[in-house]
Structure formats: C-alpha cells, structure tokens
Design a binder for these strands. Structure first.
Lengths: 228, 228
DNA sequence: CGCTTCCTTGATCTAACTCAAAGAGAGTGG
DNA sequence: CCACTCTCTTTGAGTTAGATCAAGGAAGCG
C-alpha cells in the first residue's frame, strides 16, 4: 500500500502566501471558502469514519471518494461517489454519519467547519454553496432510493453507467475509478451480478470494456431505455 | 370518496387578523413562516405532482402524506411518509421532484415559496428551520438507502416499525396511517412480503396486530436486534 | 516471474416475487 | 339489521432474479 502517497501534513493550496503571515486567503476557490488545505490520500485511505467528530468537510480535487455506512454484520452501502469538484462530509450535527475513503489515490481540500456555517449558514458567503451541495446530495439520494428499491440489476447498471458518464469529462468513454465491489455496494448488488450485467451489455454491443475499468458507451439510446 | 372533506379554498390559520389589513402575521408558528394557509385533504388526494411548479411547500398538521416517484412503467418508490409537524415539498429548483398525496384524510398548512427562501435562505428568519428540515430529509434518505440496498425483508419491516414507533405519540402501540401497499412501496417489497413478515412477527410474539392497521410492539429489544 | 488482487464464469440455491384465491372489515342500501 | 359490495389483507403454491459457492483467468506490482 502506497502510504508514501499520503503525507501526514496538510499543505496550503491555491493560495497567495504572504510570507510570514498566518492567515492565508484562497483565491482560486469559487466557493468563497477560507482555510482550505490540500492533501493527497492513498488508495483506500480513511478520510473520516462514521461517528467521528465532523470538524472538517471536503472537496475533491482529483481522484474519487466513497462515502458509506456499515451494518453491524459488515454489510456495506455506499451512498455516493464523489468526483472532482464535489463537496462531501457536510453535517448538521457534530458527527459524521458516514465513513469516507479514497477510491484510488485522491487529492482533497479540507475546510474547517466553523460554528457559523450550517446552522447559521444564514449570513456567511459560504452558505449558498454549502446549501447547494446539500440539496444536490438530497436529490441524488432521492433518485438513488428509486434505483435501490425498484430497479432490476440491469436497470441499475444502465443507470449507473449513464450517471457516471454525465459526470465525467468525456461522456461516452471513461475510466471507472472504483472496483466492482464498490459498484455492487453502491447499487445493492453482488460483485458477481455487476460483472454478469456488464458482460451481458458488452455481448449485446451496448458497451465495450477494453479493460475492466475502462468503459465505452456504444449505444446510449439503448442504455437510456434500459434505465427505465 | 369523501371529496366533501376537501375544500377548494384555503383558509387562514393561526393568524391574528387585523381587520382590513392584507399582511397577516402567523403567531402560533415556531417557524417564523408567514402566509401559511390550512386546508383539509381527502384520502389519496394529490397535493402536488412530480414536475409541477414548486410554488408552495407544506407542513403536516394532522394525518399523513406520502411523497413518491414513479418509473415509466408504473413502479413506485415512496421516499418518505410525513407526519404531523413535518415539512415537505421544499425544493431548490423550481419544480417538485416528487408527487405528494394524502394518506388518509390529512390537514396541511401551505407556505408560499418566496424567491428568497432557499437560494438566499441566508437572511430570512425562516432559513434555519427550512435548512433543518432539508438536513433531516437528507439523513432519512441516507439511512433509507442502507435499508433498501442491504437489508432483508424482515430487517426492513423491523426497521420500519421501530421508526414509526419513534415518530408516534405512543411508541409501543399505534395506528399505521398507510395501507400495506404503501409500506411495500416504501421498503422496496411487495404487499405479500410485507404481510408475511408482519404475520411472522406476530406468530413469534414480537408484535401484536389487533387490527391490520393497529400495531402493538411487544418486544422492542428483539425488533432492534432484527433491524440489524 | 511469481504473488496477490481483481474480475469473470459456471453451478446451485434461496429469498422474495408472482399468480391465485380465500378471509375480513367497512360502508351502502334494501 | 342484514345482505351485498368493495377494498384491503392474508395465505398458499409455484417461479425466478439475484445470491451464494466454487473455480479459473487476467492484470498489476515487487
């Protein structure tokens, strides 16, 4: 495991450093957020865990992050994958209600959670952006409930592929950042069912899988129909 | 169907009416919300539907409401039941992303959604309460994903019963406001499976069902264990 | 080159679904 | 008050989508 990739110290990022000054001001942030610090994380490194103090929230710079919960016996549900630009780890209470881990190597910016930002997100300039992130999470969670509760395995896979495509730079050919087990735990399936559905879609010419992590969408119309 | 229960006109509620004045001020509202109007809805009456303009959001006064989405072929997922005191129908975009219907007869207060309340929920006094409602929805949605994706039928039913219990006045004996089909569409099951699980729990002495809508929790410890 | 980890494929099993039909209430009208 | 209807719920029998169990295969890394 590349623990070398992960430094134990945060380093300032995207800032104008006035030598000798403590208070840094981030300027390439569209968020108006202050106090962000960039850090690299090794694959599978824990970012925070369920029940831990929610002192920070995060933005993905590169790579990907999974947020998930465990049941007592170890069953896992990945509620979301977070890609570059996404905020995650925002809480209204003082504990994280999920665990978060890097999916592959990832770079994140962390923001110290000040007393004023959620409850009285009211007056801060950062309020609106955080609220937008929360609303987006809610919308994602709500459509994911439809998927988990009512879609078949093939419909889940089709939905997942189209959703990833929309979020990636190229929307008809991309690399999946996560292994099959993560896809399974996100879609409420097993790894074998995920694999079989992908194989089926490839056999039918809907997608191509030149490598297990590389997907080419050959027929999005069919995928959209399959998505239900 | 008792359409008589449903009036087509809203009536002011909980307000001090200064005769001749247009601007009313609600005083029994903990929300600082203005412009609320109370209305009764008949069983199964539509409150709003997916894709409609989100001009209002609502608070349940009595009865219950289900919010849900449909798939193209009619499969339904009920994302949540809303009980007295709950806010629902809050959107960041300008359309409702769910449909809402009364579960049994229900009384609701509607609030006109002003331009300022979500995006710039910032300065209004009503911001914090709305944000709290949104955060609660998010938390519910997130634990519901765990349920839908990873729990067995019996675990789903146990979770559901304990959750309802916690939200009702008496937490060990209550009436279910909704029929089996709604429970099924909320938990990602069929009506038959819901019925079989309830019967099984009754056979095992964990609950009693003196009437199909009336539940007595006889052994919450076992239920909590079953919930996983 | 040889681990090790991830992915695929096949065979079998089972939880939950589907289909079918019989109770059980609740409301209606004679 | 009783018979009738309608809707909701329960129960049973059979089916199936997806899980589980069990090998293999491929790709990355040391």
């Amino acid at each position: 495991m590349h623990t070398a990739l992960s430094t134990d110290h945060f380093s300032p990022s995207g800032v104008i450093v006035a030598p000798g000054l403590q208070s840094l001001r981030i300027v390439d942030e569209p968020w108006g957020l202050t106090q962000g610090r960039t850090r690299s994380h090794a694959s599978d490194e824990e970012i925070f865990s369920e029940g831990s103090r929610a002192a920070f929230f995060y933005k993905v710079v590169s790579g990907a992050v999974r947020t998930f919960k465990h049941l007592s016996d170890g069953r896992r549900q990945i509620d979301a994958f977070h890609l570059p630009g996404d905020l995650f780890g925002i809480e209204s209470g003082d504990e994280h209600r999920f665990s978060a881990e890097a999916v592959g190597a990832a770079t994140l910016v962390s923001y110290r959670r000040c007393s004023f930002e959620i409850q009285a997100s009211a007056r801060g300039q950062l309020g609106p952006e955080i609220i937008a992130a929360v609303m987006r999470s809610l919308e994602r969670a709500q459509s994911h409930m439809m998927l988990l509760g009512r879609k078949s395995a093939l419909e889940k896979i089709a939905t997942f592929l189209l959703d990833m495509a929309k979020r990636m730079a190229k929307d008809d050919e991309f690399d999946l950042p996560m292994p099959r087990i993560d896809i399974a735990d996100h879609l409420g399936l097993t790894i074998e069912t995920v694999s079989r559905c992908l194989t089926q879609l490839e056999r039918e010419g809907v997608i191509r899988l030149p490598a297990s992590r590389h997907v080419v969408l050959r027929n999005k119309a069919i995928l959209r129909r399959l998505r239900a």
